[in-house]
Amino acid sequence: MSDAVAAPVLTIDGPSGSGKGTISRAVAAHLGWHYLDSGALYRAVGVAAGWNDIDLADPAALVRCTFDTRVGFRDAPGGEPRVLINDVDATDELRTETAGAAASAIAAIPEVRAALKERQRAFRQAPGLVADGRDMGTVIFPDARWKVFLTASAEERAERRYKQLMDKGVSVTLAGLLREILARDARDANRPVAPLRPAEDAVRIDTTGMGIDDVVARVLALIDG
């Protein structure tokens, strides 16, 4: 059995704004494991498509874009990893609502999901992997030893996103963010391929009203237990 197959995996899935990225990075750092931000891969394809004026309704062109897009991650001390698209640091652009909407749209295309599947699975390396996304526990790593599904009320998720963007100097409205989150929830939950849903064996954690440290402790307790 190869190291990749033998390496343990913790999947953390959930809707936009549930805190899965923040929690996953913290858990991975605590364990000394690798970290996969699967959403960044879809956002990267969406951004690359925009750079090349590719129609998001053209599956064939998006699949070509997926194979042509190189995505790299560079550690940033004290913060989230920087994301490189074809050697260009596009981290800030990836975190925009436009990139998120593009990612949600292309994630519904089966051919794009298939093209990214093995790229995601390649992150499974010793000593272990924390993978965050929307189908990590159901499709990409169905054999993961531990699975978590994070959620929170739509209102709280909108408020979290609002604070993040305002801190970065991005002008948004809370009402607009709430509409976008509800719309994205509907798209992700109702897409025909790999819809957003908890794995049957996932532990569900509602993070509404919870602090980051409390959620991280809950997740770590699952592994320690």
Rank of each mutant, 00 (worst) to 15 (best):
D3I: 07
A6G: 05
P8L: 02
P8H: 06
S18G: 09
G19K: 02
I23G: 03
I23Q: 09
R25H: 12
V27W: 02
H34W: 10
H34F: 14
D37E: 08
Y42S: 06
A44R: 08
V45H: 06
G46Y: 08
V47A: 10
A49C: 09
W51E: 15
D55L: 01
L56C: 07
L56P: 14
L56Y: 05
A57W: 10
P59K: 00
C65V: 02
D68A: 14
D68H: 04
T69D: 05
V71H: 01
G72I: 00
A76E: 14
P77N: 09
L84M: 13
L84R: 05
D87S: 12
A99I: 02
G100R: 00
G100W: 06
A103S: 15
I106H: 04
A108I: 07
A108M: 11
V112K: 09
V112W: 14
F123A: 08
A126I: 07
L129R: 03
A131V: 01
A131Q: 05
R134I: 04
D135H: 04
D135Y: 01
V139S: 07
A152Y: 03
A152F: 06
S153Y: 01
A158L: 00
K163R: 13
M166S: 07
L178G: 02
R179C: 13
R184A: 01
R184S: 06
R191P: 10
P195S: 12
L196K: 11
D201F: 01
A202N: 05
V203M: 10
T208C: 08
V215L: 04
V219T: 07
L222E: 00
D224E: 14
